[in-house]
Simulated assay, not measured.
Amino acid sequence: MSTKVMRRLPLIGIVVVLVLALASIMIPRANTAPQRVALLGTTLPQNPAPGFSLRDQFGARVSLRQFRGHPVVLTFMDSNCTALCPVVAETVHRSLSEMGSAGRNVAVLAISTNPEHDTSATIRRFSNQHHLLNRWHFLTSPRGELQPIWDAYHLYVAPASSSPLVDQHHTSATYLLDKRGRERVLMTADPATSDLITDLRILLGLRPQATTAFGVPAPEAGHPAPLFAARTLDGRSVSLRSLRGKVVLLNFWATWCTACKSEVPMLSRWYRQTRGRNLMVLGVNEQEDRGTVAAYLRKYAMPYPVALDESSVLGARYDVAALPKSLIVDGQGVVQMVKLGELSEHDFAAHVAPLLNR
């Protein structure tokens, strides 16, 4: 090799290195950072929420600062209201209930918009009606002390009315504050339950819960089971509310499903063995007519009741995308197990028997 060629090799190497270096700068790299889940509602610029200190329905002094470390639902209410306030209160209650144990880590504050007529008695009555008496702080004070708070949260409240029977007009606003006390979301009018749950789970640092075709949270272990009402093949009405106090095994099935057929002997045995021990096995037939189901039951005896879900209303509510699907719900209406596919003896031993032995 000539000396001339040998001298060029280092120069070529330097050029290659420079080209690769430039390429690494110019070619965009894949973003491997985890993607933030977007909050719903109107997102706010994360400013510190204006502070306040007021008295609640029990006369206790409550300040916003004491809830640092917890997401806060901050809303504005009139305990005498007959229009939107009761709807928002019910949405808050339903959202906390459907969140299960996670909901206990959320603080809820309601500030009066009718201080002249929001008395301790009316506030406690309103709170009781919406199952929130011991779950939220309904705060009030004289109008002069509340006005700066309303202004700070951009709330319009009409002048005082002489009668408590007249709805006090005010802006409907529900703020969601994060654990650091910052304004994160504003929801106006009546927030959707699913939106409120999604945002609160994000602010708690939990993954958003999947939703069904109805836009409600899909059933998950540890969360309340969606309420339902249906009719069995023999015409009896059955509802989850009427089964409260019992362990409920919901089994979604169809006559064409081979795995569903394989489960019948085992489900029948569980049903017979636990009679009198507070277990209700309920088969839910999906999208088949009464005649088809009746003919199948004459051939394959099922001792437990079978509900018809011809339009798949229950199936949508319970997020049934394939069969069989089974859920075990405890006596308090909380889902303890969700299983897609054929049940096993292990499922009974691990999830049903412990509930019956409590």
Rank of each mutant, 00 (worst) to 15 (best):
residue 1 M to D: 08
residue 9 L to V: 15
residue 9 L to K: 05
residue 10 P to V: 06
residue 18 L to D: 06
residue 23 A to Y: 05
residue 34 P to A: 10
residue 36 R to I: 10
residue 37 V to H: 12
residue 54 L to I: 09
residue 57 Q to V: 10
residue 60 A to W: 01
residue 61 R to C: 00
residue 65 R to D: 14
residue 66 Q to L: 04
residue 72 V to M: 02
residue 72 V to Q: 03
residue 73 V to G: 03
residue 76 F to S: 01
residue 78 D to I: 03
residue 80 N to C: 07
residue 81 C to L: 06
residue 82 T to D: 09
residue 88 V to W: 00
residue 102 A to D: 14
residue 107 A to L: 07
residue 110 A to C: 07
residue 121 A to C: 01
residue 126 F to D: 05
residue 128 N to P: 00
residue 130 H to C: 05
residue 135 R to V: 11
residue 135 R to A: 11
residue 137 H to F: 03
residue 139 L to P: 10
residue 147 Q to K: 12
residue 150 W to K: 07
residue 157 V to W: 03
residue 167 D to N: 15
residue 173 A to L: 11
residue 174 T to I: 11
residue 181 G to D: 01
residue 183 E to G: 06
residue 185 V to G: 00
residue 189 A to D: 14
residue 196 L to S: 01
residue 196 L to E: 01
residue 197 I to Q: 01
residue 198 T to S: 15
residue 203 L to P: 06
residue 203 L to Q: 03
residue 205 G to V: 07
residue 212 T to C: 13
residue 218 A to Q: 04
residue 218 A to S: 14
residue 218 A to P: 07
residue 223 H to I: 09
residue 224 P to H: 02
residue 234 D to M: 04
residue 234 D to C: 03
residue 238 V to D: 02
residue 238 V to A: 08
residue 243 L to Y: 05
residue 250 L to Q: 07
residue 251 N to W: 02
residue 252 F to Q: 01
residue 253 W to G: 10
residue 260 C to S: 10
residue 262 S to I: 07
residue 274 T to Y: 01
residue 274 T to C: 04
residue 276 G to T: 07
residue 278 N to M: 03
residue 281 V to H: 02
residue 287 Q to S: 15
residue 294 A to R: 15
residue 297 L to I: 12
residue 307 A to P: 11
residue 309 D to K: 10
residue 311 S to N: 14
residue 318 Y to A: 01
residue 320 V to N: 00
residue 320 V to K: 02
residue 329 V to T: 00
residue 331 G to H: 00
residue 336 Q to L: 04
residue 345 E to P: 00
residue 349 A to C: 05
residue 355 L to E: 08
